[in-house]
Design a protein around this nucleic acid. Structure first.
Length: 296
DNA sequence: AACTACTCCTGGAGGC
DNA sequence: TGCCTCCAGGAGTAGT
């Protein structure tokens, strides 16, 4: 569930702690996780210095000296932890295994040794995440090939940009649309639900059904939930169950609990194969929506 | 174009 | 206890 706020929080932490460090060793414990471009391998990483940590959507890029970059995607359960002498220096991503617990874990697939004696551990219980090694010059092309939509928290993501996305995908239901990284880059299941709740829009509404006022509300809500998570801490959701901190998340992972606004029970439905949490009172169902218990 | 189903994987929860 | 099924959900792909 690392989504934009989780990856961005991690990026900021690693920018402070990892930049300037030189990699002195690499251990690949699960080969499929480490994918070097043709002609490249772990030997090319040893001796390289970390020069910058960047993010695009949910991708995290460690830019190294020698013109190389490591491109990470944490997918569902990936995490990166920088540790020295058993102490966490920076950590982010999926919170299992718990940050601060001894590493390597049995699901630690990649270990980078640094010149100050610290280690960067890539751990991923479900093994969906990966780390690519490629020339820095090719990173932009690679990311472009992924077809990522506008970066939500960048100046390019204006209300007009968002309206253009909605126009191009008029028939799409809001929930799958928000999850589609080609439409907008960065949202995942948790923050998509949060944004729809905040905008008071039912997840099954279609993009083309929104009034201009609703479009603006959704645009604001998307930005707000992400900025809130970056400011006050990311949501903690494990196995679909939320552990709210400071009342966040408000609806995701909280089936049957009261809506923070109206007090009615939060419902869970499946949309596009994914659990979707919403308040049927605050988020009115579309008229053509066969009952989810949300109308009437 | 948009939908569903399946795939990659493991671990935790609940039923019996 | 132990075996079974279901569920978690980012993203790619195939088929309708």
């Amino acid at each position: 569930m690392p989504e934009l706020p989780e990856v961005e929080t991690l990026r900021r932490a690693l920018s402070r702690t990892l930049v300037g460090r030189t990699i002195t060793g690499v251990e690949v414990r699960l080969p499929k996780v480490f994918q070097p471009a043709p002609g490249l391998g772990t030997r090319d990483v040893v001796g390289a210095r970390v020069e910058a940590v960047r993010r695009r959507g949910k991708y995290l890029v460690l830019e190294l000296s020698d013109g190389l970059s490591l491109v990470f995607h944490l997918r569902l359960t990936g995490q990166l932890v920088l540790m020295r002498d058993g102490e966490v220096i920076a950590a982010g991503g999926h919170p299992v295994p718990e940050f601060g617990s001894p590493l390597p874990h049995k699901a630690t697939h990649l270990i980078f040794d640094l010149d100050d004696g610290s280690h960067l551990y890539f751990t991923d219980i479900r093994r969906f995440g990966f780390c690519l090694l490629m020339p820095t010059a090719e990173v932009a092309t690679y990311l472009a090939e992924q077809g990522l939509g506008p970066e939500v928290l960048s100046p390019e993501f204006t209300l007009e940009t968002f309206r253009e996305v909605l126009r191009q995908r008029r028939a799409a239901r809001l929930k799958p649309l928000l999850l589609d990284q080609r439409a907008i880059a960065g949202l995942g299941n948790i923050y998509a639900d949060e944004a729809l709740w905040l905008a008071r829009l039912h997840p099954l509404r279609t993009a083309g059904s929104l009034t201009p006022e609703e479009e603006a509300r959704l645009y604001q809500a998307i930005r707000e939930v992400l900025e809130h998570a970056l400011t006050y801490g990311v949501a903690r959701v494990v196995g679909g169950r939320a552990t709210p901190r400071a009342g966040f998340p408000r609806v995701h992972g909280r089936e049957g609990e009261p809506c923070p606004v109206c007090g009615g029970p939060i419902e869970r439905i499946r949309v596009g194969g994914r659990s979707t949490y919403f308040c049927p009172r605050c988020q009115q169902a579309p008229h053509d929506c066969a009952s989810t218990g949300a109308d009437r």
